[in-house]
Design a protein around this nucleic acid. Structure first.
Lengths: 337, 337
DNA sequence: TTGTAGGCGTTATCAA
DNA sequence: TTGATAACGCCTACAA
């Protein structure tokens, strides 16, 4: 039913080998024959069968990304921007993008990675939300499966990656709210073993120290990177005896939850309470009030991760394998403008 | 390098045929052999090669969705919720989800559909943002490629689909703002040939008529379903001689843009100006102020579309092929609460 | 420059 | 119940 190279070959009275080579742009074919083949293929509406090609070439022209989220219904705009970047660049590079979601660290996650890697569903993978120690990195290295990541784990000392200097971003953020007159600065973070939690908490502490502010563990709360988590944590923080006048969050999603809580409580965000996030997602610009944040170019990072991955897959190690980006402080009304 | 059924067969001194059948759960194999095979497969970490299976079985166990968006960077939360639903249900049904984006109606879109369908990349497709007359429907029918859609085109008289009664949803919406005292009710829509534009505009007009309000074409504006479009359209509407005191939008994304414009202009949304959307995306709940909207369960619709599609693919036409859902008015502060 | 043929890993159709 | 064996559509040595 479907058109194969065999059909084209028959029409043109050529061998399937010749047709195949003509279509793939091999040099050892006469210009005239190639033209005839290409034209006929177009006419007949030929589309190569991917399964066959994959089976033969042992590659899939597909890259994968497994979104590390707890709940299936979770939609952080960080991820949508990230996935947009992946999708756009994958399409530029003529790769397909396979996407799934799995709660990090669970068996289900391991199963998917195993299926994708060992079942040859992808030629390479994009990782993010890295843990300090991350089994995915070990696994992929052991399977010789190419991957690139945003941030990195301790295992991946030489893996191609993009890093954002979260620490110094957070130092800047602390300085900024200090300058605006806020003194009791709280922090809502994420899971302890997450790389960015490590880096950003560190930046928070370094910032305090630099300004001569005391670190108070009562002002540090563990969120879960969701807006619900931010909402809950902030309600708790606000109700302690000597409550904070500023809340810095590990990511924008958390900060958006804080805004919700503060608005509910009738606090004047930017005056009574400063709130800031980290990521620079689009939503943050249109929140109420607009959110101060440390911007990392999520979309562009995603695109570059794909480019690096494709280089890895093709074995052309031309680009630098480790890119470090400085984040950029975006001051908006949530910290007084 | 990778483990194939051949390796298992060798280990167990069986034929590859026997191994294949044992693994696939065929009945004509002894219980004992099956156990040995399954156990050995587990031990050796066998994962079936999908390309080979696809090539042989002529199916991909993959469903596709091509997001109909103009700009690559466009991210409407309607789509993220929709895609979440698709992804979750696909995973339940043991299907992969292949995603791409393409501007509707352009050659690029046709190319992707052609590649996916004729290159056997997917077993079925999910469609949305249907046009009154939609080439995709014609194409897929002609190719005998299963698909399900949210809303439908004129061509798909008997295709499996979910429909939401937009018209009556909009009538309700008009009644609601009327009740709140708003009298000059505007509408910001989308591309003219879009099914939902047709239905929702119709509901808007029917609502006006029911209440004895005059239809005024100066109050109808064509947006593009984006928040930027809503922003621009509303600025224009607000500046006309006899401006509206209520703006109803074809979707939430548009309405969020209207909110932004109104906030910028210092209007008190819910008092000076009523604003409402359609979709019930999560973001609408947390906008400033929270947005009145006509809710359609986007996530659940997506899941059900996948279930229906899988039924189509498997040829088990058990379910009803046409599901009509009533939308639900969610009243929030943007129309006075 | 072109044709021939083997094989990628599976499943399915036969015999045994 | 099991074992051969032929496809599925494509790519690629190798031969012509």
């Amino acid at each position: 039913m479907t058109i194969t190279i065999r059909d084209i070959a028959r029409q043109l009275d050529l061998s399937i080998g010749a047709v195949s080579r003509a279509l793939d742009g091999y040099p050892d074919i006469s210009v005239e024959t190639r033209q005839r083949v290409v034209e006929m293929a177009r006419q007949m509406g030929y589309v190569p069968n991917r399964a066959a090609r994959q089976l033969r070439k042992q590659k899939t022209d597909t890259i994968g990304y497994i979104m590390p989220v707890e709940s299936p219904r979770f939609a952080d705009s960080f991820f949508s921007e990230f996935i947009e970047g992946l999708g756009d660049e994958a399409s530029v590079q003529k790769y397909d993008l396979l996407i799934s979601t799995a709660p990090p660290g669970q068996d289900q996650e391991k199963l998917i990675y195993q299926q994708w890697v060992q079942g040859h569903k992808v030629d390479g993978l994009i990782l993010d939300r890295m843990f300090m120690s991350d089994w995915r990195v070990q696994f992929l290295i052991s399977q010789k499966m190419p991957f690139t990541s945003l941030e990195t784990s301790d295992e991946g000392s030489d893996t191609p990656r993009i890093e954002v200097d979260s620490r110094s971003g957070f130092v800047e953020l602390v300085e900024h709210v200090f300058e605006r007159g806020f003194r009791r600065v709280a922090y809502i973070g994420g899971p302890e073993t997450l790389r960015i939690q490590h880096d950003r908490l560190r930046g928070y502490r370094d910032g305090l120290q630099k300004l001569g502010l005391l670190f108070d563990s009562a002002l540090v709360s563990a969120g879960d990177m969701t807006s619900a988590g931010g909402y809950n944590s902030s309600k708790r923080l606000i109700s302690i005896p000597d409550p904070p006048d500023a809340i810095l969050c590990i990511n924008d999603e958390t900060a958006l939850g804080v805004l919700r809580a503060a608005n509910e409580l009738g606090m004047r965000v930017g005056k009574d309470l400063a709130v800031a996030g980290f990521d620079g997602v689009r939503d943050a610009k249109y929140s109420n009030p607009p959110l101060t944040t440390v911007d990392q170019p999520v979309y562009d990072i995603a695109r570059q991760l794909v480019r690096m991955l494709v280089d890895e897959i093709r074995g052309t190690h031309l680009l630098e394998r480790r890119v470090v980006l400085p984040p950029r402080l975006l001051i908006r009304e949530s910290t007084g403008g």
